[in-house]
Amino acid sequence: MLAAAALTADGPLPPGTGDHGLLFGTRRGLLSLDAGDSRWVVPPGHVAWVPPSRLRHAGRHGEFDGWCVTVAESACADLPGAACALRSSGLLNEAVLRACTWDEGPLDAVRWRLAGVILDEIRTLRPAEFGLSMPLDPRLLSVAGGLLGDLAGARSLDDWAAEAAMPARTFTRNFALETGCSLADWRQRARLMRALEWLAEDRPVADMATDLGYDNVSAFIAMFRRATGVTPSRYADQPLAGNSVSIARETPP
């Protein structure tokens, strides 16, 4: 029904194209995932669920330590149908760590019950806002790709609407319908997700601010504090299991 394995900074990752679901957990560092129609970052204390055949790419940042649970397709029917980030629980973490010690082979009655606990936790964990929905319209998808490729860019909404060959009002409406947020909020979320990756890699805050298009470090720190409740340095110093982000939907300065 399922199997679990520890993940390290340079160890192998499970393939994402098979007929199994994947649950990733982070204990240290940061994990980034591309599920095609969405992208996610997974800081410590959180997990990400990816349904069968959805994972396109996974990246590890910093001194990574985590785990992955592979779930047979037959057990995925009542699990989330789309990739999502979730707030982990002590019960899930301990159950998975126990499952990581199992040898290969059929599950006995005790292990079967523990596997059921893991699946129950996936069903009931609270969602976390670490996702970045990708639009399906090819024109809007091109805009999203352009934004991700140049997060420091200062192109306006009108510029991107022209890029998509749409009137500005149509572009604004369609982008929000397909991604769930405005262009400004989407760009801020993308910048914050990239900042979290760089923070896990101990990149200097001043460099992050410049490379994300902020005029000065203070403006970047203010954005980060509004989104997370703490400064970048305070976030990096928090206990691993306590790191948490609630990405605010507001236009950055």
Rank of each mutant, 00 (worst) to 15 (best):
R173Y: 08
F220E: 01
P127E: 08
F130C: 07
W160Q: 07
L240V: 14
R194D: 13
R189P: 04
P167V: 02
I221M: 03
G153T: 08
A190R: 12
A164W: 15
A222R: 09
W160D: 03
E121C: 13
P204Q: 04
L212N: 13
P138M: 11
T170H: 12
R173A: 05
A128F: 10
L157P: 11
R203W: 13
E129I: 02
D159M: 07
L196G: 06
P204F: 04
V205K: 13
L141N: 14
L240K: 10
F220A: 02
I122M: 00
R123F: 02
V205I: 15
A128V: 12
S142I: 00
R194L: 12
E201L: 01
A219M: 02
S142D: 09
A219W: 05
Y235N: 05
R126M: 01
A154I: 15
E163N: 05
M134P: 13
A152M: 06
L132G: 06
I247M: 11
L183H: 07
S246G: 08
T210F: 05
L147P: 09
D137S: 00
S218P: 01
A164F: 15
G180E: 01
A219P: 03
S133W: 09
E129V: 03
G145E: 02
L192R: 12
T228C: 12
N174C: 12
L177Y: 08
A176G: 01
Y214I: 10
P204Y: 01
T124Q: 14
A227W: 08
L196K: 00
R169G: 00
M166V: 07
S133A: 13
A161I: 06
G180C: 03
A200H: 07
A219G: 04
Q238R: 13
A236S: 08
V230R: 10
T170E: 09
V230Y: 11
A176E: 04
G131N: 00
L136V: 04
P232D: 14
G180S: 05
S182E: 02
R123G: 03
R225A: 04
D211Y: 06
R123C: 02
R189V: 01
L148C: 15
R123Q: 00
G180F: 01
P239C: 03
V245M: 01
W186P: 13
D137E: 00
M223V: 09
L192P: 09
A176P: 01
M208Y: 07
G149R: 03
W186D: 11
G131E: 00
V245Y: 01
A184S: 14
L132V: 12
G149M: 05
S156F: 10
E201P: 04
M166D: 15
I221P: 04
L147M: 15
D215Q: 14
I247S: 14
A236I: 02
R155S: 09
P204W: 03
E201Q: 04
D215G: 10
P135V: 10
L192M: 13
V230W: 08
S133E: 11
L183Y: 06
Q188Y: 14
L212H: 14
A222G: 06
A195D: 09
F224N: 08
D202S: 09
R139C: 02
A165D: 15
D207G: 03
N243Q: 13
A165W: 12
F130G: 14
